[in-house]
Nucleic acid binder design. Structure first.
Lengths: 176, 176
DNA sequence: GTAGTCATGTAAGACGTTACATGATTCT
DNA sequence: AGAATCATGTAACGTCTTACATGACTAC
């Protein structure tokens, strides 16, 4: 359950509400989860029970009350311990590969259509990623060093899509 | 449920048993699922009910009887239709990015340790992928063209890990 | 008026994994 | 003696997604 640590990681920069976390998840490709209510609010209450965060309810005049969550020393220690444990390798998946298994069923024109569609999809992702990068950091940072890190990760993600586009080009050339 | 189409895709090359499918899943990074019994055998029985495959039980002398599944014309049509529908973009995820959110909690030595561990993990994946490629095609193919396709996909996957290693090198340089 | 923001929470279901269950044969 | 291969199936559980539910305020 890495989302637990993702939330601890976000809270380690500054105290935030569940709603703030939702926006962070929506605005960052690093946080690959959908950022749905169910996971965020239930995980926050789990973290609270475990003593890794504290909760402070702040009433507001013109809006519903918010619950601001702050990471505890225990939470910081748990985050650090997990960070130094053995990392999982990165994941690379594409259902396009599965679609290519149907190539025997396709005409040449249909194969070209399939490639074009995938290329468009990847290109759209690249643009979206560049837009996210342009908008700035969805995740709060505490230092210029952490900011630089976030930028390097976002460059890496954009580079991934660029490489995928090059790979599609290679497919086109070699299977004409 | 793309695994359904993954199974149809594998069966489109030749009739196979659930056990054969398990081996295909285990021996290919393209099929990113674990290849566990539950998913394979239940999906096969779903496909049978839907008329997308047929089943033939073959008794054996020295081993348990096998159930060989063959894709039907309906199955081929369903596979083709799905293949030409809008593809999902490729997925790129790494929990290492989440771990980096804890960088404020780490000393310089611990940060280096984290990078080293991740690099080792990625390197191990690269070697494993190259070993899979060396062993040849876990997924049956019907033509040299399809074989070439599988090779290009496997090259792409190895290239992904290589790029990730380069990215780690960049992190090292820029955050020293 | 219609959509978007602010704000929190629950229900139902899809998808995926590990572990359990059985049992003969073959290789080291 | 122990591990691997052949072969199929079920149970329990963890994870993640969409949709439901509520309600005031604000901008076009």
């Amino acid at each position: 359950m890495a989302i637990k640590y993702a939330i601890l990681g976000i809270l380690s920069a500054r105290p935030q509400t569940g709603y703030d976390l939702k926006k962070a998840f929506a605005g960052s490709a690093v946080l690959h989860w959908s950022g749905n209510n169910n996971q965020i609010y239930t995980t926050l209450s789990d973290l609270l029970k475990a003593g890794l965060v504290t909760k402070e309810v702040q009433p507001q005049e013109k809006h519903p009350a918010k619950s601001v969550y702050t990471i505890t020393d225990q939470g910081l220690a748990a985050l650090k311990e997990w960070a130094l444990s053995r990392p999982d390798p990165p994941e690379y998946r594409s259902d396009f590969w599965i679609r290519l298994m149907a190539v025997g069923q396709l005409t040449g024109a249909e194969f070209t259509q399939l490639l074009d569609q995938y290329e468009q999809e990847v290109h759209a992702q690249l643009l979206m990623q560049q837009e996210l990068a342009r908008r700035g950091h969805a995740i709060a940072t505490k230092s210029p060093r952490e900011e630089r890190l976030q930028d390097l990760i976002m460059d890496g993600i954009a580079g991934f899509y660029q490489r995928e586009l090059e790979w599609i080009g290679k497919l086109r050339k070699e299977l004409r």
